[in-house]
């Protein structure tokens, strides 16, 4: 039984390439798919568009470093003082840093789907949802129906869990 998406849905995809836009645009028709390649670009879209849902990639390893957000100093300290590993850490978890940046900019109420498999890290996801109540995740192996179901579910989730 396929789940129907609400009409007129606007979804902002934040990714470092075009794969999600291509795939979702083709295989999950219905929503208006918008795209941003960085936190700054996402904030610009959010400033001019009404976005119903955020759809975020986790890894931004193709993005230029100046587009990455996050506390580099803390990252360096966390990575044994190695700046390269710090940059890599920021890139690999950039989706969460972007969410943090958006929350700080006042968009923490938006429902968000993170393209990441938390199936083996349930405790981590619980922790993340504690700071972003309308967060859910989609594994890379999800079908279009799975994605639609997740979208509907996260849209129906209230801000206060």
């Amino acid at each position: 039984m396929s789940v129907e998406l609400p009409p007129g849905l606007a979804v902002l995809i934040v990714e470092d390439g075009d794969e999600y836009l291509d795939t979702l645009g083709r295989f999950v028709p219905g929503p208006r798919w918008l795209q941003a390649r960085s936190a700054r670009a996402a904030l610009e879209v959010l400033a001019r568009e009404t976005i119903d849902l955020l759809y975020l990639d986790m890894r931004f390893d193709r993005s230029p470093r100046h587009d990455l957000v996050g506390d580099l100093v803390a990252a360096v300290a966390r990575n044994g003082g190695d700046p390269e590993r710090a940059w890599r850490h920021l890139a690999l978890h950039q989706g969460l840093y972007i969410l943090d940046a958006l929350a700080r900019a006042g968009h923490g109420h938006l429902p968000a789907l993170l393209a990441y498999d938390f199936a083996r890290e349930p405790r981590r996801f619980v922790f993340l949802r504690s700071t972003w109540p309308r967060l859910d995740w989609v594994s890379d192996g999800a079908t279009a129906a799975d994605i639609r179901a997740k979208m509907v579910a996260v849209l129906g989730r209230s801000v206060a869990p």
Partner: peptide, 17 residues
């Protein structure tokens, strides 16, 4: 897992449907 398996299911299943 990240580069190869990503998007495959949604694309293949979507096309099949």
């Amino acid at each position: 897992r990240h580069e190869v398996l990503k998007h495959n299911t949604v694309a293949l299943e979507g096309l099949a449907e």
